[in-house]
Design a protein around this nucleic acid. Sequence first.
DNA 1: TGTTCTACTTAGGAGCGTTCTT
DNA 2: AAGAACGCTCCTAAGTAGAACA
Length: 593
Amino acid sequence: MYRRLTSSLLGRRVHHPQFTPVCLRLGSGGCSRWEEEKKEDGVKWTQLEHRGPYFVPLYEPLPEDVQFYYDGKPLKLSLATEEIATFYAKMLDHEYTTKETFQNNFFNDWRKEMTLAEQKIIKDLDKCDFSEIHKYFVDKSEARKALPKEEKQKLKEEADKIQEEYGYCILDGHREKIGNFKTEPPGLFRGRGDHPKMGMLKKRIMPEDVVINCSKDSKIPEPPEGHKWKEVRFDNTVTWLASWTENIQHTLKYIMLNPSSKLKGEKDWQKYEVARRLKDVVQNIRAQYQIDWKSKEMKKRQRAVALYFIDKLALRAGNEKEEGETADTVGCCSLRVEHIRLHPELDGQENVVEFDFLGKDSIRYYNKVSVEKPVFKNLKLFMKNKNPADDLFDRLNTTILNRHLQSLMDGLTAKVFRTYNASITLQEQLKALTNSEDNVAAKLLAYNRANRAVAVLCNHQRSTPKTHEKSMQILQTKIDAKKQQVEEAQEELKKAEDEFKDTKDAKAEVNVEKKKKKLKRLEEQLSKLNVQATDKEENKQIALGTSKLNYLDPRISIAWCKKFGVPIEKIYNKTQREKFAWAIDMANEDFEF
DNA sequence: TGTTCTACTTAGGAGCGTTCTT
DNA sequence: AAGAACGCTCCTAAGTAGAACA
């Protein structure tokens, strides 16, 4: 894979000091750098050394005067029971704690950790009073915020020291930043959406739960005093440094490198190269799935319609999920009949499909799309004699789809379409929206609009900021005031003009010009405010960050910056520049996705 | 062939520090 | 100077996808 990727780039004279220098003499007999850098298939590193995870501090008991009450009476809890009580107490302000599932799951798990004596007393969550504990933590956080500067500085230094010690590893001779070097603290599980496991107790991770991965000849990390690792292994075919199994869903959690690392950067680059290869064959693929809409095989038709959705609407693949274990969300292949409605005609458009389902993170996907006639017909067919809860594509799953895609192009999977369509959209939108005559601010507005088009395509949403309504009102007040001013200025201008008509006086003429100027200035300010309001309104539920970080080939943005004289810092902050170091180094203004 | 396990990317929200407004 | 708004970092859940297993 790497060889192919690299050789495909040879013509573009790519180099990056941080990244593997590419051998430019391939085929001209031996290249020691290449030999040195090239790893066997699947091998990710030759040297990996680190300190192991940083374990979050142990529980500190509450002060004596902070009490838990049961049925109105103070009750001293055992340490373990108290700790779990604090998890709930801390969340009292949160909407979660009002949900029945959350309460039940919490109470169940809490009771399991209680002593027998406690179990006998504490039988009803409604009789539990956590308010004093809650207040204790609110006060504590206030106190921390109010700490004098020097104290805050001291805390910062302590955190930096931990970061310095545990936050880096050595990978193939380079010091690399680790992404998440701390174990996750215990607490109550907060799933997204209507999660059946919300409120369950997430247990503390101990060294005995942790598998360490490093190189054999490295300094093996020491477990904390008096503890042992679950296992130490030396697997250079994976990129993780440590792992443990989490107790809610029984899935693995990993400690991995920061996106700024060479390892992650090269993987990112590779991802965009695959998407660029799709660009060369996408027209053929589209032509083929349109033919397949009319296939005799129902299986093929379903595959072709699903692929059309993935391509046109940037839907996710939609793996199957275990029922009852997670929130009920779907992607393309797992769509059910109840998630779409067919309208032969709607709002003047024909063959409209109305999508309404919860996707990843329980984010709602709602869209009305006019589709080609054969797609519409097929959907009707797929839905025939089915219940709302039945699968729309009953003969398709992501494995089948991806196997097909793999046969169309090496490395092609459903998610590549999202990457490809996102990046190509950015490139096209930038071309359409950027005006080289504009100043930097206007160019940035164009960039954000292009970015927004992608975010809309990928359905990247955020919850409306709590302050949105209010700041919108403030803006509206400003607009109203400005309108008033404009009207006044219009009247003043009219008066001045009348006066000039009457007097033909030079002074009056000057006054007319003055009033005209004033009106123009005010009108400009008004239109600026209106644009701002539109912008804000359009952006209130759209998150730009996700596409910027995960879907848009950074070389497109960098090329745009170079071409139009926009400093890269205007579009990428420090972290983002670190992540995209590879692209910043290799892309010039001619880069084409 | 279906199921489970593993490894990795993608995702939105919380919280906090900084900047802008009043 | 205080408060609001904004932007960034951290956090960890929730996806995708392929391998291993039965």
